[in-house]
Simulated scan of single mutants.
Amino acid sequence: MGARVRKLVSAVVLFGATAGGVAWFLTKPEPWPAAHWEGLGEPDLANGERVFWAGGCTSCHAAPKTEGDARLVLSGGLPLKSPFGTFHVPNISPDESAGIGSWTLAEFGTAMTRGAGRNGEHLYPSFPYGSYARLTSKDVNDLWGFLKTLPKSTNVAPPHDLRFPYNIRLVLGGWKLLFFTDKPRVTVDTGNPKLARGQYLVEGPGHCGECHTPRNTLGGFEADRWLAGAPNPEGEGRIPNITPGSKSIGAWSESDIVTYLETGFTPDFDSVGGSMVEVQKNLARLPAGDREAIAAYLKAVPARE
């Protein structure tokens, strides 16, 4: 009997180890190969700044309540409360110790578009790499070049304060397996350059779906309700539906949307409020053609009630 029990225990251990190995293989971080970032040349800093404002980097990474040029000091520290616990936004200034100044382009690009840290760890999707996965290699290279021109900060953000089991990064591999994709969220006429640009901006650097799309209990997008509105991640009220099926915004014309993104005023002469204030200020810095592209895409997505 003892020998049979030992064989059974050995078989269970072997099965567990094999299952664990298979699970790790399926969910391990997947950085880009180094060759993916070769041959991009010198960054286009003007385009890098354009990507910077489209991505709203200051909204999360600047110190809270800063104004003017101080917004360009990406010192981190902002707490982001969620049902899983509190995330603390990191320092992404060019400081070599507290920030990401010692990172390579490959490490930065892998974090942005694959959600993996420089040490091979999974990053939490509070950092919207699920949207940034759509970024082109050129835009990543240009953004990286622009970030390196910004002021350094020695601020060290606190570690995340998450509940079990969300504080175990290995769990994120399973989350990515279920929800992470770099594919388009909806089908639009990509033969239309304006629509294609709008889709890229909204689904990629603009990461609009991160707030405007509802999520399931595991934090993944409800794919069939893209941009249909969702609970406010900051805890109060709701983020509105911005599809053509919205009872309010759905009636706006493309020019209404463009004016709102540029000035912050609605067709009814109301003004932007809440967390959208920061977003609107960032988008107002983009070329007019980009705001027009965003508006065209928002009018073309499937209507959701």
Rank of each mutant, 00 (worst) to 15 (best):
A19F: 05
T113S: 14
T263L: 10
L178N: 02
L283W: 14
A3D: 12
S97P: 02
G198A: 10
G117H: 03
K28N: 12
G209M: 09
D95A: 13
D224M: 07
A23Y: 11
P158L: 08
Y260D: 03
L177Q: 11
V279S: 04
D256G: 07
G191H: 14
W32A: 15
A284E: 03
K299C: 05
P159C: 00
W226K: 00
P214N: 08
D224L: 08
P193G: 07
R71A: 04
S253K: 07
N141S: 15
R225Q: 15
S10L: 15
M112C: 05
E234M: 11
Y297F: 15
F146G: 04
L172A: 00
F265T: 03
A34Y: 01
V171R: 02
V171Y: 02
W53C: 01
G229T: 11
K152N: 05
A296G: 07
V156D: 00
E107N: 05
F87W: 09
G250C: 06
N155F: 08
R238D: 14
G229H: 11
L45N: 01
A223G: 12
R185N: 11
K65F: 09
T66V: 15
F52W: 04
D256I: 02
V277K: 14
T136C: 09
G39A: 03
F52E: 08
T263R: 04
R291Q: 09
E222C: 04
E278D: 14
P302L: 08
G289F: 06
